[in-house]
């Protein structure tokens, strides 16, 4: 039924899937066979096929997170064959397609692994730590109304573009998953640099970086050792440059802020 290529050959695959009942139980890898997988399918559609099969047979489907399936919501988060979001660079799990695999392949699928991302069930993990980091300061403190006209403060185009590039982070957590240290610095740095670059965010830049880093540490993420796995696996290409900006912001905030605590 392939749309573009009527001759695409269906594949049979072995899946090694992490199954875990809930947060408190131990998990394990369970083997499944899936048949007649079209190369035109997305990876998640292949899992849909598996889940429909399981459900029909009276077995529990594999729980996994997903939503928009167009690579922007950041819900999907599978560790596929030892890589965050699988083998294709710059691609979320939902945008990965089965034509990247071959008939007879064995595919290992695991959840993100980090103490700060406990497993809810099977492949679904709890990433609320990211929300708490944003709550610690990932915003500009303005109320609705009473703000100046949008064109009141000009922002140089290159600054706006760089801020935008940092702001495109989808909060999927691939950086944490790929990092040997389970560090969240790429995620934190993306927000810190976006707001540090823009004039609107400069007002609170010191307290912001101090509070966000403190929360990041509190959540139990590791420390960055500049390995670069995070940026290599980031589906939207957030640059390591942001981590340097974060470090710089942190250092100068600590050295010059009026916060004695």
């Amino acid at each position: 039924m392939a749309g573009s290529n009527p001759n695409a050959k269906p594949m049979n695959l072995t899946l090694k899937v992490w199954r875990q009942k809930n947060r408190t139980t131990q998990g394990q890898i369970v083997d499944y066979q899936v048949k007649d997988i079209s190369p035109e399918m997305s990876f998640l559609e292949m899992l849909d096929v598996l889940n429909e099969d399981l459900l029909r047979r009276g077995d529990e489907p594999v729980a996994f997170d997903h939503d928009c399936r167009e690579g922007i919501c950041g819900s999907c988060n599978l560790f596929i064959n030892g890589r965050a979001h699988g083998p294709e660079a710059g691609t979320t799990t939902c945008q990965l397609h089965m034509r990247k695999f071959s008939d007879g392949d064995t595919i290992t699928i695991e959840p993100w692994r980090a103490s700060a991302f406990p497993v809810n069930k099977d492949l679904s993990v709890d990433r609320s730590a990211f929300d708490r980091i944003i709550q610690a300061g990932g915003y500009v403190s303005v109320n609705t109304g009473g703000v100046p006209d949008g064109n009141e403060i000009p922002v140089p185009k290159d600054i706006a573009d760089r801020a935008f590039e940092a702001a495109t982070c989808i909060g999927c957590g691939a950086c944490v998953a790929a990092c040997k240290n389970a560090s969240a610095m790429l995620f934190v740095s993306a927000k810190v640099s976006q707001l540090a670059l823009l004039p609107q965010g400069k007002v609170e830049r010191k307290t912001r970086v101090e509070n966000m880093v403190a929360q990041m540490d509190k959540e139990g993420f590791g420390a960055c050792s500049n390995i670069g796995s995070c940026a290599a696996e980031c589906p939207v290409g957030i640059s390591l440059e942001n981590i340097a900006i974060l470090n710089r912001e942190f250092l100068s905030a600590k050295a010059t802020s009026n916060n004695l605590a």
């Binding site: 500009v140 609705t144 109304g145 703000v147 185009k157 573009d161």
Partner: peptide, 19 residues
Amino acid sequence: IDQCVAQGVPFAREYGGLL
């Protein structure tokens, strides 16, 4: 638009820095 700019939404800009 004013509200979003104030929040730090990085809208596209012209070279002169305006929206």
